[in-house]
């Protein structure tokens, strides 16, 4: 680990001021950043500890929830309103990491965690365009069973590892930001970027910007939602494919639907093609399969991850089937 300056902030404005120097990074639970620093993949000049900032989870006037970015993952998953009104979010968080890590990790840090691509971690022996822009990607021709099938580029095929973000993407969550130029907000689905030619730029955040809160809109459909994660072992592993879905069936037809995928792309993947195909149509297993196929139509498999196309298709259809059965 390279030397750094440590400072603790008690509110967002102070954190942004403390982070003004070049090379400063915000520190949440440290479950990803401290590990990357120990591997010297991250070498911040300063760490601004933001775990003391707002961590409250409260109702908004609109009827949604506002979640302070310093809230721990466990606190969000165990919150009664999240469990009853946005169950896919509670289940997504509980599907991620281990209980110890969920007790440490903040919501803001979960959003900004970095890929677990093994070539990104292997700075002694592998090329990676995230670590050294322009040097090439050893994952594209390497062991890429866990890598992206949607939205990847010739420069990067890494996936975003978060489970929580998949549910947030499905539920139209909005991210509140503070920065040197003031406060602003953006949809979570616009915060993470696709890799394109610059996979080292992972988000739409401006220099020095800090996530202060996540807002969930009032979304009655989310009360009938779930999250399914498919992985190599039953617990404590990253997703091969995951699905967050909410479904509203009326008179046998899909009145409304929300669908997002994890483990398949450089960002949490909102499945808008499938949603479009489903809305207004019959709530049948055949229609679920057709919609899933439409979402996966642009998928581009690598040497080892072609199985994800069928796995994602089946998982989408199965989760929608489960929710439709529940609604019936």
């Amino acid at each position: 680990m390279t030397p750094f300056r440590y400072a603790r902030a008690t509110e967002a404005g102070e954190a942004v001021r403390l982070a003004a120097e070049a090379g400063a990074r915000y520190l949440g639970g440290g479950t990803n950043l401290v590990d990357l620093m120990r591997e010297t993949i991250e070498r911040p000049a300063a760490l601004i500890d933001v775990t003391g900032l707002a961590a409250t989870i409260k109702e908004t006037e609109a009827g949604g929830l506002r979640i302070g970015a310093a809230a721990r993952n466990t606190a969000l998953a165990e919150h009664r309103a999240v469990r009853s009104r946005y169950p896919a979010l509670a289940r997504a968080i509980l599907a991620g990491a281990s209980a110890q890590i969920r007790n440490m990790a903040t919501v803001g840090g979960n959003i900004l965690q970095r890929t677990r691509c093994t070539y990104f971690y292997d700075d002694a022996g592998a090329r990676c365009n995230k670590r050294n822009p322009g040097e090439g990607c050893d994952a594209i021709d390497g062991f890429n069973r866990s890598h992206a099938i949607l939205g990847a580029s010739p420069a990067c095929v890494a996936t975003h590892p978060s489970d929580m973000c998949v549910a947030l993407a499905a539920f139209d969550a909005v991210v509140h930001l503070a920065g040197p130029a003031g406060a602003r907000q953006m949809p979570l689905t616009e915060l993470h970027r696709l890799p394109g030619g610059h996979p080292e730029i992972e988000t739409a955040l401006r220099p020095g910007e800090l996530i202060t809160a996540i807002e969930l809109p009032p979304l009655p459909i989310a009360a009938r939602s779930t999250y399914r994660k498919v992985r190599d072992r039953a617990s404590y592993a990253f997703a091969l494919v995951s699905v967050a879905a909410a479904l509203d069936v009326r008179d046998g037809r899909v009145a409304d639907v929300r669908l997002a995928l994890g483990g398949v792309a450089h960002k949490p993947w909102r499945a808008r093609r499938a949603e479009e195909a489903l809305r207004g149509g019959p709530a049948t297993a055949a229609a679920f399969r057709v919609a899933a196929e439409a979402e996966l139509a642009p998928a581009a498999p690598l040497r080892d991850n072609g199985f994800k196309i069928e796995l994602a298709t089946r998982t989408i259809a199965a989760v929608l089937g489960e929710l439709a059965g529940e609604a019936a």
Binding site: R8, L27, G29, G30, T31, V34, T51, T74, A99, M104
Partner: peptide, 15 residues
């Protein structure tokens, strides 16, 4: 009182 991983916790964060 909460279980955490001490390897990924910076000691200064425990002030």
């Amino acid at each position: 009182g909460e279980r955490i991983l001490s390897c990924l916790t910076l000691a200064v964060q425990c002030e």
